[in-house]
């Protein structure tokens, strides 16, 4: 991977637009980190340095903000990022059984990525869809009313897509 980081023209246009939406450059930091993560896949030192340079902010400030937020990742995630809610309502409706399916099918624990780079598994807190519990997100897409069977099928489907 090259050390060079640069926004694509589309991302650059979004970046220029968001600079006009805030009274300070610092306020554009989190949106710019989002652009960076979407463009580069993850936010390593090089990516953070690029963001710092573009916003003319000290690197320390960029790192300080970035590391506070759990959705920004310093390392590459798998092709499929599975985030399973394990909070109260999902627990009441059987998320433990779903966790077991992850173990059985993928052998992954919280925050682990499979050796082939296909799956990253994360246990997360309430995603505000408790009426459709248990639920998960796969690459940001909400998947509701999971059963061990439906979830096993989902994972097997993703495996075959890889």
């Amino acid at each position: 991977m090259s050390n060079e980081r640069k926004f694509s023209p589309e991302t650059e246009a979004q970046f220029q637009k968001l600079l006009t939406r805030y009274p300070t450059r610092l306020a554009a930091l989190i949106p710019t980190l989002w652009l960076g993560q979407e463009e580069f896949g993850h936010l390593d030192r090089t990516a953070l340095a690029y963001v710092a340079e573009r916003l003319e902010l000290p690197m320390s400030q960029v790192v300080n903000t970035c590391t506070f937020y759990t959705m920004f990742t310093p390392v590459a995630r798998g092709k499929f990022h599975i985030e399973l809610c394990t909070n109260v309502a999902c627990w009441l409706r059987g998320c433990r059984e779903i966790q077991q399916v992850v173990e059985d099918e993928l052998g992954l624990k919280h925050k682990q990525t499979s050796a082939d780079g296909m799956f990253t598994y994360e246990e997360v807190e309430c995603l505000a869809a408790c009426d459709k519990a248990p639920m998960c997100q796969v690459n940001g897409a909400d998947t509701y009313n999971l059963t061990p069977e439906s979830f096993r099928e989902l994972i097997r489907g993703l495996k075959s897509k890889g």
């Binding site: 909070n87 109260v88 309502a89 807190e125 309430c126 505000a128 869809a129 408790c130 009426d131």
Partner: peptide, 11 residues
């Protein structure tokens, strides 16, 4: 931000 566990109306 709707993140109080059990809340899903703002969604």
């Amino acid at each position: 931000d709707e993140s109080e566990p059990g809340t899903f109306k703002d969604r």
